[in-house]
Amino acid sequence: MIPTRFEYLAPRSVAGLVAALDEESRLLAGGTWVVPEMGRAESRPRRVVDLRRAGLARISVERSRLCLGAMCTYSDLLASEDVARYAPLLRTMATGVTGGAALRNQATIGGSVAAARPQSDVPAAFVALRAVAVVSGPAGTHRVPVAELFLGAGRTTLAADEVITGFEMPSSRTSTHGYVKLKRGGSSWPIATAATLLRLDDAGRCEDACLVLGGVEEVPLTVDLTAILGRPPGDEELDAAVTQATAALSAPWTDVLAPGDYRATVTAPVARRALTMAWANTGE
């Protein structure tokens, strides 16, 4: 049983959610993170504000942008044709989420982003996809690039009375992707993740490239790949990109899974595997 008392509310609209939020309340999405935390009394909100009745689980495509409600679960991503078509990287990512179907049916993308855990899959993947978060608060609705939401491990720019209602991202259907996680065992948290997207022009030159690493620092780490733009991807370009990844790392993250120097060591191979995967798919 959760040791502390709380009030439970499930507003039916975004306005209702925002009105219910204050310093002493906590949003409840899938609950896979919040509920155990409350059980251990690490979080003692006076009010729990459930997002599930506010209708935030829609997936749609609007003007070739993929729009995902904050309450979409990993299972929703896996079941969606739109996700498969417009952001196949997310499908690959969701396939590798641990905890089984029960967990994938429950855990949401909004919860993963808002929790801002360094080792989580969604934050770095969304940064790679150039996702923008739609945020509602007392002052109205605004859009923030997901990359700008993260302040540190478990910390975001979201105020206590703000809620992420969804995400929007440009279509990445003309890009190939690579996604790699380094884990200790089948069901452990990742030590490092790498998400990459690559698009070639008609002449086979790299027109757009991005690589974002997760778990290696407190917040997703974007690697500058301008050095390989305009060039056909080959071994030299791969080496250059991996070198950039290593150079980008300044404050490697330490937790119970691995010390910072271990993460610094694995950054290059993890980046290389993801890039190789995206490279290999350009031939298709």
Binding site: V35, P36, V48, Q106
Partner: peptide, 25 residues
């Protein structure tokens, strides 16, 4: 903590870990 699955049930048709839900919700 959601790791072991011993508490699994089907909730509105979908399997889920019932230790990760507040009952009144």
């Amino acid at each position: 903590t959601g790791d072991c699955g011993a508490c699994t049930v089907r909730l509105d048709g979908l399997i889920t870990k019932s230790c990760l839900h507040i009952a009144v919700a």
